[in-house]
Computed example of a mutant assay.
Amino acid sequence: MSYLKCSGMCQLIGGLLLLLLAGCSAGESKFLAGNLNAVNHTSAAINHFSVNGYGGGNVSPFGDGGGMCCVMLPRQWLPGLKLKVEWETDPNPNVRLPALGTDAYRAAYAKHKANYQQHSTIVDLPSYETESLCSLKVHFLSCNQIKLTTACMAYGQPGYPIKEPQVMKEPAVCPK
């Protein structure tokens, strides 16, 4: 059965391929993957958000969720690590629109969508000491402020590091 025989060159190539594959699996990834979740402390809807380009879903006013897989963070935390958070808000998520599919709907929706607001900020990545990442939770606070945590517990549980109330009112004037 000649198809089972392999020349010296074939064995050399096969050996090199095995060596390359072994080299790929022997190294440890420099990143950890975790879920990307959000808690919205505001009356605006979060239409969508992202952290360093990793997308999150939408989050209702004063709600939580937006969970997506996955966000990649460095396996080892180092001081000074920053993340870019981008998000879009709908300041009037409870607007009543005409019947879907009509010209009146399209006109009203275009006018409503013109009020959507785009936001972007750079925030510090909070320290974490674990080799496994549960999730990165983004907290959307009043005045377009952001807080992050990698805590492996749910918001509101004892020991959770972010203590702001779920329902926050927008102040008349936001601090700069």
Rank of each mutant, 00 (worst) to 15 (best):
Q157Y: 11
A154C: 02
N40M: 04
L100Q: 13
Y109M: 09
Q145R: 15
Q117C: 02
Q157K: 13
P165D: 15
K169Q: 15
N52H: 08
I162R: 05
L125W: 02
H112Y: 13
R75N: 00
L16C: 07
H48I: 04
H119C: 07
S29K: 11
R96T: 08
Q76I: 10
L141V: 03
H112W: 14
Y155V: 07
P98A: 05
L21A: 04
F140L: 08
A44I: 03
V173G: 01
A151H: 11
D103L: 11
P74W: 10
K82G: 02
V51F: 09
M72N: 11
E129D: 14
I146N: 02
C24M: 14
A104D: 15
Y155N: 10
K5I: 02
G34N: 06
T149V: 09
N37P: 00
Q118C: 01
G101Y: 06
L73D: 06
A45V: 03
S43Y: 09
L4T: 07
S43H: 15
K82E: 11
L36T: 08
F140M: 07
L133M: 13
P126N: 10
D124A: 15
T42R: 08
A44E: 10
G156Q: 09
M1S: 14
F140Q: 10
N35P: 00
I146S: 01
R96V: 13
E170M: 12
L136I: 04
P98D: 05
H48D: 10
E86D: 13
L17I: 00
G80A: 06
D124P: 00
L81Y: 15
N40V: 02
G65E: 03
E88F: 06
L18R: 02
L133E: 07
F49D: 05
Q118S: 11
S120Y: 00
L17D: 00
N52E: 05
L17H: 00
P61S: 06
K169D: 15
V59T: 12
A104S: 13
K5L: 09
S60A: 13
V167Y: 06
K147M: 14
V85F: 08
A172Y: 05
M1D: 10
P93T: 00
D64W: 14
C10N: 07
M72P: 00
G15T: 04
L78N: 12
N52K: 06
Y3F: 13
L21G: 04
K111A: 15
C70V: 09
K30V: 09
L20G: 00
V123F: 11
L32G: 12
P165Q: 14
L97P: 12
G159N: 11
L141W: 04
K30L: 15
G63F: 03
E86G: 03
G34R: 05
